[in-house]
Amino acid sequence: MSLAPSSARPLACLKQALRQCRAERHQLRQYATAESHYPSLQTRYPAPSPGFRTSHATKQNRPEVNMKKIAVVPPPRSIKKVCPDPIEALYQSQLKTLDPTGARTRLFAKTNVDRAQVGDILLVRLKSGDPFSGVCINIRRRHSPIDTAVLLRNQLTRVGVEMWFKIYSPNVEGIEVVQRKQGRRARRAKLYYMRKPSHDMGSVEGVTAQYIRQRAGGTTRGKAGGQKKKSKSKK
C-alpha cells in the first residue's frame, strides 16, 4: 500500500525532498551554534565582535599583516602596438638588403608611369651566366612584393624559351627595359597568347644586341657583339 501512492503520483517524492532541503537550510543557518559542537568547524580566528559588518572583515579578519607583498606585473605591451604590420616590416627589412637603391622597386611600382609592363622587352643581367632578354609576358606579384617575378619569352636557335626571374633575386644584377611595347599597351595582364605561332614575336636577340651596342656607345665591345651575332646567324 505504501508503494501505490508513489507510483500513482510521481511528484509526491518532491514534497519529501523539499522538506529535507528546508531542514538542511535551517541547520546551516544555525552554523555558529553547530561549530561549537563540531571542533573541526571551529576557526582559528576569534569570533566577530558584536556589531560586526562585512566591510570590517578586511581589517579585522586578517592576521597576516606583515605578509610579503606580491608585485603586480603590468600586462605585456600589446604586440599590435609594437609592430602593427609585421609582414610590411619584414618586406622593408628585406628590401634594405636586396634592393638598397630602390631602383628595382621603382621599375615595377604600380605608381610609376614609366614602369616596366607586359609587352616590353626586358634584359636581365645575371651575376652568374649570360644575360637573358625577352618579351615580358607576365609580371607576378604574389604573397609579398618581395616575391615579384617576371616571365620573359624569347627564341634562341628558333626554339621558344621562357624564363621566370625573381626581380629581387641576389643573382639578378640588373633589369633594363630594352624596348617599350610598340603601339598601344597590352590589353591583357598575361600575354600567354604570344606562345601561339600566329602571335609569337620571334627572337628579340637582334633588338637586344642593338640596344647593348647603343648603350656601349659604339665601342669595340658593341661591334664585337654585332659580329658575333652575324657569325651565329651564318652558321
Binding site: S128, V159, G160, V161, E162, M163, W164, F165, K166, S169, N171, R195
Partner: peptide, 20 residues
C-alpha cells in the same frame, strides 16, 4: 630540353617550347 617548367636552385624557372 623540356616543355615542363623546371625551377633552378636560384629561383628562376626555365621552360622550352618543345621536348628534345
Amino acid at each position: 630540353r623540356t616543355a615542363k617548367k623546371y625551377q633552378r636552385p636560384d629561383g628562376s624557372v626555365v621552360k622550352f617550347d618543345d621536348n628534345a
